[in-house]
Amino acid sequence: MKNVRFTLLLLWAATALLSSCKKEKDPAPDLATRVASTYVFSELFYDGRTIPAKDTDLKGSVRITRKTETTVDIQLDIRQKSTNDDFMAYDVEGVILTENGSEVFLAYEGEQFAKIKGDAITVTGEDSAGERFAIIAKR
Rank of each mutant, 00 (worst) to 15 (best):
Y39F: 09
D127Y: 00
N84Q: 14
R5Y: 12
A137D: 05
E131C: 02
I135P: 06
F45W: 10
A14D: 02
S61F: 11
I135L: 14
R139C: 06
A36D: 11
G130W: 08
K54C: 09
T65F: 04
K22W: 01
K54I: 15
T70P: 06
V40Y: 11
T38W: 05
T7I: 14
D73Y: 02
P52E: 06
R66E: 04
C21V: 12
I136R: 12
A114Y: 04
R79M: 05
G48L: 07
L44N: 13
K138I: 14
E69S: 15
D55A: 12
E131V: 07
F113S: 05
G118S: 09
L31R: 08
E109D: 15
T65E: 13
Y46V: 01
Y39G: 08
L11Y: 03
K115M: 05
A13T: 06
N3Y: 00
R79N: 12
F133T: 05
D127V: 00
Y39C: 09
T124D: 15
G125I: 10
V35H: 07
E93V: 07
T33E: 14
D85G: 08
A14Q: 02
P52L: 03
I135C: 07
S82D: 13
V4C: 02
E131N: 13
Y90W: 08
I116G: 11
P52Y: 02
E93Q: 11
A114K: 04
D119W: 01
F45D: 12
G130K: 11
K22E: 12
G48V: 08
G130I: 11
M88R: 14
T65S: 13
K2H: 09
D91S: 03
L97R: 00
S82P: 09
F105C: 00
E103F: 04
G118M: 07
F113W: 07
L58F: 03
I96R: 12
V92R: 01
E69I: 11
I78K: 03
T71M: 06
K23L: 10
S37Y: 10
